[in-house]
Design a protein around this nucleic acid. Structure first.
Length: 317
DNA sequence: AAACCGGGGCA
DNA sequence: TGCCCAGGTTT
């Protein structure tokens, strides 16, 4: 018999938990507690799943749900969105944030029509080649739209694995290669089982294994969690996190310009845009960037010496 | 690897 | 106020 551990020893399990057992418990929990989200309904389409994933890039579920319903009602297919006026698309995007996503989503729709006959491909490389689709979204569409195996590693899954498998409060600020390998090792080989694990682990992170106030008492894998066993130690990466400023930033200025143009049906005079922001130089830079991004169109009156005050702005057509 | 890109809700 | 949210693109 080895000597019992001293009183101040960390009681964490010395090895990683058994993935198969954890997966089974999480999937069983998911079968009971999964939210009834519209992009999970039986009548969903692969394109609808992609739209949801793009909207969910940095926008919470509660704000995406009504927007997604209205969007799919209006433009059910990639071909529908491809044919829409871009100004309508940006107005429908409304305040979901990061309006370049809306622009890329329409570019994505046009690419799907031109390159894939309007049908979303289920191959990861082809998905990754679409505008606005990165590693996460390509994997998510493969799993949730087509039921295929992929490594779906979003902020929720990263947190679940950080706690259960690594014993840490939160994942590192930036995704690491080791983390991707770990996540891949947790995904079953079978397509259907892999897709279920991806959805279930993500949902666990969203509903139970949350960032701020995790509900460990309601967690189906609390018994196997290295972080809980260690006494829920503090975030070891806290010193490297940096909060993004907001007030007075270019992002806030851009948001004001976009909000004004969304609610304006006709061209907006330069002066009306200028009244939005106290720092004229900063605003000018932001408007230039919006024009370069393709989110805003600047109209300069014709003539050899046009009146600068006659410049107007509008959303693209 | 780091910077940039919105907006709202909640502790 | 600080923090968080089904990330992607660009440099």
């Amino acid at each position: 018999m080895p000597a019992p551990p001293s009183a101040d020893a960390v009681p964490a399990p010395p090895v990683a938990p058994d993935p198969a057992g954890v997966r089974a418990a999480v999937v069983a929990w998911f079968d009971q507690h999964a939210r009834d989200l519209p992009w999970r309904a039986p009548d969903r389409t692969p394109w609808g799943v992609l739209v949801s994933e793009v909207m969910l890039q940095q926008t919470p579920v509660v704000r995406v749900e009504p927007a997604w319903r209205a969007w799919q009602q209006r433009w059910p297919t990639a071909a529908d969105l491809a044919a829409a006026p871009t100004g309508d698309v940006l107005r429908a995007w409304d305040r979901l944030g990061y309006p370049r996503r809306a622009l890329r989503l329409q570019e994505c729709a046009r690419t799907v029509v031109e390159r894939h006959g309007g049908e979303l491909p289920d191959d990861e490389a082809a998905l990754l080649a679409l505008p606005g689709v990165g590693p996460y979204t390509a994997a998510a569409v493969r799993a949730f739209a087509f039921g295929r195996r992929s490594v779906v590693l979003d902020t929720n899954v990263r947190r679940v694995l950080a706690r259960v498998a690594a014993g840490e409060a939160l994942p590192a600020p930036a995704q690491t290669a080791a983390e991707t390998r770990l996540a891949s090792s947790w995904v079953p080989d079978d397509d259907a089982a892999a897709a279920r694990w991806s959805a279930a682990s993500m949902e666990l992170g969203a509903l139970v294994c949350t960032a701020r106030a995790p509900r460990c008492e309601a967690c189906p894998v609390a018994h196997a969690c290295r972080w809980l066993a260690a006494g829920r130690p503090a975030d070891v990466h806290a010193h490297r996190r940096r909060t993004q400023a907001w007030a007075g930033t270019d992002r806030q200025a851009r948001g004001r310009v976009m909000a004004l143009l969304r609610e304006s049906l006709g061209p907006v005079p330069q002066d009306a845009v200028g009244a939005l922001w106290p720092d004229a130089a900063q605003l000018a830079r932001c408007v230039d960037a919006l024009v370069a991004d393709g989110l805003v169109v600047r109209r300069v009156p014709a003539g050899d010496d046009p009146d600068p005050s006659a410049v107007t702005y509008h959303l693209p057509h």
